[in-house]
Amino acid sequence: MAAAPRLVLATRNEHKVVELRRLLAPHVPGLAEGDVVSVAGAVAAGLPDPGEVAETGVTFAENALLKARAVAAATGLPAVADDSGLCVAVLGGAPGVFSALWAGRHGDDAANLRLLLAQLADVPDAHRAAWFECAAALSGPGVEETVTSGTLHGRLARQPRGDGGFGYDPVLVPDGDVRTCAELTPDEKDAISHRGQAVRALVATLAPLLARGPETGR
């Protein structure tokens, strides 16, 4: 019988689950795949489904906390949620918290990219500064509620490049590089990414939580 999860990532995006597990693994010896699961993984393990959480916050931190609290309340387990997006200088920081909905349908990466690049088609290279921003929140029973953040600055390419990553990764070229985030290796991306920064800031809290065996003595 599989062991129960110990931490739920408040997302149904399996890309994020893989990425966050990879970030945690070096700090938690023996971390098993089933220790940290997505909402779908938690439901598959027999825990209640929190449903879709309305992201009504106006900042990444507010939305991350809303999701972490809702998932922790539903599952009874500590939960980590992140909220992240692309902020473009000439758009006044937009798409920002609306990044996943920019083209009108949640999570349609291709449509979001097409719309953004069309909106910036006439913007010269010198004014295409942008940054990824992420807030990560931990909430739940037996833990101190914590919010951390990370930022990755760069500039926008004129066409998507690269097959790695997801979201707006194919169009953001990090400062100091000529490749987009989607052209970086997973290790290279983890080392500089906004999500990597935010999660690493939570490691000191998460590592003891995940290393501690559950009541069964595991």
Rank of each mutant, 00 (worst) to 15 (best):
A2R: 15
A2H: 14
A3E: 13
R6A: 10
R6K: 15
N13F: 01
E14Y: 04
H15P: 03
V17Q: 11
E19V: 12
A25I: 00
H27M: 00
H27S: 08
H27R: 05
G30H: 05
A32K: 10
E33A: 14
V36L: 15
S38I: 07
V39P: 09
A44D: 15
A44F: 09
L47N: 05
P48L: 12
D49F: 12
D49S: 13
D49R: 13
P50Q: 08
P50E: 08
T56E: 04
T56K: 02
G57F: 05
T59D: 05
A61D: 04
N63T: 05
L66W: 07
K67I: 07
K67H: 06
A68I: 02
R69Q: 12
V71W: 04
G76N: 00
P78F: 01
A79E: 02
V80P: 00
V80T: 01
D82C: 03
D83M: 00
D83I: 01
D83L: 00
S84W: 05
A89M: 00
V90W: 00
G92R: 04
G92D: 03
A94R: 12
L101R: 15
A103S: 08
A111C: 05
A111F: 07
N112P: 02
L115K: 13
L116S: 07
L116A: 08
L116F: 09
Q119T: 10
Q119V: 02
L120P: 08
L120R: 04
D122Y: 13
V123T: 14
P124D: 15
A126Q: 14
H127Q: 15
A129W: 08
A130Y: 06
C134S: 11
A135S: 10
A135T: 05
S139E: 13
V143T: 01
E144K: 12
E145H: 14
T148F: 09
G150C: 09
R155M: 03
R155K: 04
A157E: 05
R161K: 11
G162E: 07
D163Y: 04
D163C: 11
G164H: 06
F166M: 09
D169Y: 05
D169G: 03
D169M: 01
D175P: 02
G176Q: 07
G176H: 05
V178G: 15
V178I: 12
R179G: 14
T180E: 03
D187E: 15
D187C: 04
K189R: 05
D190W: 05
D190Q: 11
H194W: 02
A198S: 10
A201H: 10
V203Q: 10
A204W: 13
A204E: 14
T205W: 14
L206M: 11
L210D: 09
L210H: 10
L210F: 13
A211F: 06
A211D: 11
P214N: 15
E215C: 12
R218E: 15
